[in-house]
Design a binder for these strands. Structure first.
Lengths: 190, 190
DNA sequence: AACAATACTAAAGCTCCTTAAGTATGTATA
DNA sequence: TATACATACTTAAGGAGCTTTAGTATTGTT
């Protein structure tokens, strides 16, 4: 039987994060409960660590697991979208306006502006979807139905929730509602 | 020396998926390139597999890594913060106002409102920090310095960037700047 | 009963992991 | 300058435990 080729390498990633955190091998080893030497060997891909070891180190360095396991080509640079050339999607009484989004390290976040005219609503009460959302009311007021609950939100209020419970945002007032919505993972725009 | 306590158990999850797929130990072992015996031991938590082994098996069974590693004690509920009882932090000419944040499934996101008075600035040009940010200008205008570059942002503009390059936000105008800022991982509030 | 198929167990081999010692660099002291 | 000391990381050898091979147990089929 031939030697097994190691498929997965985490060394560079761990080393990079450790450098950014300005942590020493000793510190990481202590926090992870393993030896300093082992961390060094792993960073240089001398060994393929056990799961327990890898996860302990990831925890010690506060590394997101998905970052470890996905190939990711970085070099994210600054990205500006000006107000007049943002994508937008208008349906019925709701205007979605796409802002910036993050799609790195498998962290996918989307921020968008949301305008709902009086009588309009966003979302469907029938089903939820996996993910999380944050909403910030910039102007106006609205009601949010979350599962069987119902809440009133006014200007300056914010809300965060797990999307897998059905949720719906209703503008029953007589003025327009403006809000910023943050969604992960992105759903509206691809 | 005492036995090391194993922190992470995947046995049940792997076993469950294998049953659902109606696959035998032998089939999985073959596809993963490991022995049948090993798969059996892992499913019964007799051993803590190496990363290579675990990932090979996960691949063979087409298991989503997130499913393997996340604790699913999900009971996130909706969380509302009203405008008048949000935390805030005021320093010099900058007002931070904490909004909602997400801290689930290893996704940590923080949204906050940012107000910078004329002449004020946020960030330090000396160093960056790991993470990503999204900014949306609600009112006013400002300049953003990113590495060696400099950009002008007006009302309605948005910006997204990797935080590990030094960045600074300056309000050189004569009116207040209001913005929504989204940060991951959170830094300002713990 | 005989046979095959699947799952589990025991012992031997191989890899990870630790301990201990080593190198390299920088800093302080005489 | 020389010496001593401290910090950060690497290397080597032995022990712990993952992994394989081989064998046993259980179940179902003809």
């Amino acid at each position: 039987m031939l030697k097994s080729k190691r498929q997965y390498h985490f060394g560079e990633k761990i080393h990079l994060v450790r450098e950014r955190r300005k942590a020493t091998l000793k510190e990481v080893a202590l926090a992870a409960g393993v030896s300093e030497s082992l961390v060094s060997q792993i960073e240089r891909n001398k060994v393929s660590p056990s799961v327990d070891t890898l996860l302990s180190i990831a925890e010690a360095l506060d590394i997101d697991l998905e970052y470890l396991f996905k190939d990711h080509k970085k070099n994210t640079i600054l990205n500006i979208m000006h107000a007049d050339d943002t994508d937008f999607l208008s349906l019925d009484k709701v205007l979605y306006r796409h802002f910036a989004s993050i799609d790195e390290r498998n962290i996918k976040i989307e921020a968008l502006s949301l305008e709902i005219k009086p009588g309009g609503e966003k979302g469907k009460i029938e089903y939820g979807h996996p993910g999380f959302e944050i909403g910030i009311i910039i102007e106006g007021s609205c009601k949010i139905l979350y599962g069987t609950e119902e809440y009133l939100l006014n200007e300056g209020d914010s809300v965060s929730f797990s999307s897998d419970i059905p949720h719906i945002l209703k503008n029953n007032s007589s003025s327009i509602l403006k809000a910023i919505w943050i969604i992960t993972p992105p759903r509206i725009f691809k």
